[in-house]
Write a protein that binds this DNA or RNA. Structure first.
Lengths: 200, 200
DNA sequence: GATCTGCTTTACATGGTGTCAAGCGCGCCT
DNA sequence: AGGCGCGCTTGACACCATGTAAAGCAGATC
């Protein structure tokens, strides 16, 4: 009979402990701290994750899974028009970035030393860039991409505009609300990428 | 009589050595390496800079001085109109960012652990933000700021658009040329911030 | 009851930062 | 010339986090 109490496995406890530590200290935590918070020995961390960066990578996966990006992006793609899709994408970014912010920082730190972390980070960026390309291509296919842009150029620009560090600058540093961030980014993208409808 | 040979003081030699190391290894260098490259003992580094982050901060100052930002920004401010000033500012960013890129990274790394580095970095950001505010305010004063923007909102947006990590994403990661970066950023800023002249 | 598994405990190696103290060469001053 | 101070060297060492190794132990399984 399985225990009915909400007891987490050691592995999960370690991950949750690391997540909590990352949320209030950034990535400046020692494995000793993580172990203590999870009420296991430091060696248990090594048995499960092999190394510090192994833990960080597992942490990224863990948070990703628990935040569930897929259902968000589903909503974006089901927008009626390309313009709506672009706006929905910005809403998604405004909503999703704060949830994965600390993880993005963790990954960013780990990539300095660990090739696996670097690869993982580049894969994340690639996925987001592909998303941007889809949005821009749809705009283009519907004849609404502003003059002067190639699909690739606009997609890469959109990708850079919606990266984590820009969000960090505006929301965390400048104190913009989620709404203000979304509103201004939408204004910017509409003015930049969207050709006005041929209303004449 | 002062020696006429181009012999650098120990302090300057250390800084140059650190700069060279940073340029090809990022910030993953040991003080031992710096000392060796400067042909001094590791302790000499401590005597001059006190600590690792002390060295990094001095390095930032050193590079800043040797690149001479002021004359660049003078050129920007002497533009005939606000729109020209905005475009000149983007040219400045496109030209100047690659020169200080590695330094910005160094500072970014140091700020994680060192409060002084954090303060220095925030001061840099403040200066650039003030510049952005001046450009946008002039645009506004000349009646050319696009509808829907406050001076502050537009200035902070421009500031975020021209930050180092966006440049890094587009130029280093995506391989954009300096010209492509400047051209597309100009197109974006014109479309976003500039109200068309009342023609007709 | 033997064994396997997952974790603990203790000890130790490694590598980089930072500190300390003694010493040394060289220019300067009187 | 002798003495002084300064800038740097030399070598040793403390510290701290990561990572490794080996023995032990307690509960589940057969």
């Amino acid at each position: 009979m399985v225990s009915s109490a909400p007891v987490l496995h050691t592995r999960a406890r370690i991950l949750e402990a690391a997540r909590a530590l990352a949320e209030d200290r950034g990535t400046n935590f020692r494995l000793e701290d993580v172990a203590q918070a999870a009420r296991v020995s430091r060696q248990a961390v090594y048995l499960h994750f092999g190394s510090r960066s192994g833990l960080l990578l597992a942490l990224v996966e863990h948070v990703d899974k628990s935040e569930g990006l897929p259902r968000y992006s589903q909503r974006v793609r089901s927008a009626p028009t390309g313009v709506d899709e672009l706006l929905a994408f910005i809403d998604l970014i405004a909503e999703y970035t704060p949830r994965i912010y600390l993880i993005a920082k963790v990954l960013d730190e780990a990539r300095r030393t660990d090739p696996a972390a670097r690869a993982a980070d580049e894969n994340r960026m690639l996925l987001r860039r592909e998303g941007c390309t889809r949005h821009i291509r749809r705009l283009h296919d519907e004849g609404r991409l502003a003059a002067g842009w190639t699909v690739q150029g606009a997609a890469e620009t959109l990708w850079a505009l919606t990266n984590v560090s820009t969000w960090e600058d505006l929301v965390l540093d400048r104190g913009w609300s989620r709404q203000a961030y979304a509103r201004r980014l939408k204004r910017l993208c509409l003015a930049t990428f969207v050709r006005p409808p041929a209303a004449g």
